[in-house]
């Protein structure tokens, strides 16, 4: 099977690999898995008060397509708004990397990870708003 140059490039030189402080108030963490292949993907977003994603990090244990999908998606959201990040569809990732049909689920995983990270951030913000400041 032939993989695209872009996919191989992201796999060999993944962008934004690493982690952020998962306990920080301005960091949302998404941890998702794909039961079919047993891959795990952790994606973290650091979001400022204006709703802009200042930093994005990921760590993925899985196949090359899963690593490339998560690398690409961190690059896509950095410097963008939460709303933009929420609108990302797996098809955008799959197209950009020219994923073969059997690897489409890797892009679904990346979309799920972004959504989970944003949901975690929102939950933290809601908790902060509910806690009276001293």
């Amino acid at each position: 099977m032939a993989y695209s140059d872009k996919l191989i490039e992201h796999y060999e030189n993944p962008r934004n690999m690493g982690s952020l402080d998962k306990n920080a108030e301005d960091v949302g963490t998404g941890l998702v898995g794909a039961p079919a292949c047993g891959d795990v993907m952790k994606l973290q977003l650091k979001i400022n008060d204006d709703g802009i994603i200042e930093d994005a990090k990921f760590k993925t244990f899985g196949c090359g397509s899963a690593i490339a999908s998560s690398s690409l998606v961190t690059e896509m959201v950095k410097g963008k708004s939460i709303d933009f990040a929420e609108g990302i569809k797996n098809t955008m990732i799959a197209e950009e990397l020219a994923l073969p049909p059997v690897k489409i689920h890797c892009s679904v995983l990346a979309e799920d990870a972004i959504k989970a990270a944003i949901a975690d951030y929102r939950k933290k913000q809601a908790e902060r708003a509910a806690t009276p400041s001293e």
């Binding site: 941890l31 079919a36 244990f61 995983l109």
Partner: peptide, 24 residues
Amino acid sequence: PHPAESGGPKLSPEFLEEIFELRM
């Protein structure tokens, strides 16, 4: 003979966390 490509049973966050930590 195997689960669907995407979807499948939802695993608890605790389990995924455990697997991720073991991987690390």
